[in-house]
Write a protein that binds this DNA or RNA. Structure first.
Lengths: 221, 221
DNA sequence: TCGCACCCCCTAACGCCGTTAGGGGGCTAT
DNA sequence: ATAGCCCCCTAACGGCGTTAGGGGGTGCGA
C-alpha cells in the first residue's frame, strides 16, 4: 500500500486514494483505515481533512465524474440527450460500485456542477422551458442511476457464486418458469423477456422512451 | 425490546422484527444484533434461519412490498401505469429507508413476484408486445427507485443539521446562485428550478414523460 | 421406558469498523 | 529564540458481522 499522493495530505489526495481502494475492494470494502493506508497515513489523520466517512464518499462521488467526457455538440438535442445517458451509464459501469456511490448522494462538487451546467445549456438551447430543462436533467440521472443499480444487483445471490451473467440470467429464467402457471401466467410466459441478458438493449429501450416523452413535451409547448 | 413473534423464530418473524428495527433506527442502524433483540433472541441465532445479513435484507425487501395496494383496474393502461408509479413511490416514502433497501436488490420474493405479475398482465392487455411489456415494467421501477433515492438524499449534508426540506432547498439554491455567472450561467439562472422543493411535481413530470414515450411506442407498432 | 438424533438457540470470541481524545513534531512569523 | 498553529500520530471505545462449539429440549424408534 504505497502512498499515492505527495508527502502532505489533501482532499484531492484522499479522493484519489479512495478511488484506488474502491476499485480494489469495492464499496463494502472501503474503510477509512484502508483509504488512509493507501494515502500513506493513519486512519485518524483523515479526520483533519474530512468530517466523517460520509463526506469522504461525497468527495469520491465527485471524483468519479471527474473524467467524464461530454458528448459532441452535433446533431439535434435528442441525439445529444441520448448520448448523455449512454455515457453516464458507461461511466457508472466503468468504475467498480460507482452507481452505489453516487446513488443516494446529491453532490455539489465541481465536476458534477460542470456536467449539469453543460447539460442544462443544451436543453435550453433546444427550446425547453427553464423548469422543464431542470426536470429533464434530473429525470435522466434518476433513470440512469436506477437502471445501473438494478443492472448490477446480484440476481438473488445466484451469480455471486461465480456464475456468469448469462448463466445467472438463465437461472433467473428458470425461477420464473418454475412458478405455477395458474397464479403467475405472465411471469411464466415472459420468463425469457424478463431475464434477457442484453442490458444494452434494455437500457436503450428506456432511454428512447424518455426522449420520446420529452419530444412530445417540446412539441406541445 | 419485547419479542414480536411467537416463541420460536421463523423467517417471517425475522422479517417482521427487521421492519421494526428499520423504522426505528434506519438502514444504517439496522444490525443483526438489534434485529435479534427485537425478535427476543441472540444475534447468532439468526444464522440458523438466514445465511447472512444480505439474505436478511432480501427478506426485508420483500416484506416492504407486502402491503402494497394495487391500483384499480379502471381507465386506460396509461392511468394504471401512472398510478402504479405513484403508489410505488408512496410505498418507498412511507417506510423509512425503504428505497435504500430495495434499490440494489432484485428479489424474487413472493410479494414482489405478485406485483410484477399483475403489472405485466395489464401491460400485455393494453397491447404491448411481450418484450416491451417486460421492459416497460423494469423502466418504471428503475425510474421510481432512482427518483426516490435522489429525493431522499441529504442535500449535501445541509439538512442533516435539522434544516427542513424547504430550508435545505433554499440553501441549495444559494449554492447555485453563488456560482460565477461566467462559468455557470445556466446553474445561476435555473437555481430556483433546480431546487424546487415540490417533489410531487418533479416526480409527476418524469412519470408523464415515461407514459408519453410508451404511448408513442404503442402507436407505432 | 430408555436413549438417540436432530432442531434450535446459547455463550464466547475473532477481527474489523467509524470515530474521538490527547499528544507531539516541525514549520512560520514574530 | 520562542510562540503558535498545522497536521499527523498512538491509543482506545463501543459496535459490527460472523463463526465455533456447546447444550437444552422434543420426538421417535427400540
Amino acid at each position: 500500500m504505497a502512498q499515492t499522493p505527495a508527502r502532505t495530505l489533501t482532499r484531492e489526495g484522499i479522493a484519489a486514494a479512495a478511488l484506488v481502494v474502491l476499485e480494489r475492494e469495492g464499496l463494502a470494502g472501503l474503510s477509512m483505515r484502508k483509504v488512509a493506508a493507501e494515502a500513506g497515513v493513519q486512519a485518524a489523520s483523515l479526520y483533519w481533512h474530512v468530517r466523517n466517512k460520509e463526506e469522504l464518499l461525497d468527495l469520491l462521488g465527485d471524483a468519479l465524474v471527474a473524467d467524464a467526457e461530454l458528448p459532441p455538440r452535433t446533431g439535434g438535442w435528442r441525439e445529444q440527450y441520448l448520448e448523455y445517458g449512454r455515457r453516464y451509464r458507461a461511466l457508472l459501469l466503468a468504475r467498480r460500485d460507482a452507481a452505489k456511490v453516487v446513488a443516494g448522494r446529491l453532490t455539489t462538487g465541481p465536476h458534477v456542477l460542470a456536467v449539469l451546467e453543460d447539460q442544462l445549456d443544451r436543453l435550453r438551447a433546444a427550446g425547453f422551458a427553464d423548469a422543464d430543462a431542470a426536470m429533464a436533467a434530473y429525470l435522466l440521472s434518476a433513470y440512469v442511476q436506477g437502471f445501473v443499480l438494478q443492472e448490477q444487483s446480484p440476481l438473488s445471490a445466484a451469480e455471486a457464486a461465480g456464475a456468469s451473467r448469462g448463466q445467472a440470467a438463465r437461472a433467473a429464467g428458470d425461477v420464473f418458469r418454475a412458478l405455477p402457471a395458474e397464479t403467475h401466467p405472465n411471469l411464466v410466459a415472459l420468463a425469457d423477456d424478463l431475464t434477457d441478458p442484453d442490458m444494452d438493449s434494455r437500457f436503450e429501450f428506456g432511454l428512447q422512451r424518455l426522449a420520446d416523452g420529452l419530444a412530445a413535451l417540446l412539441r406541445q409547448r
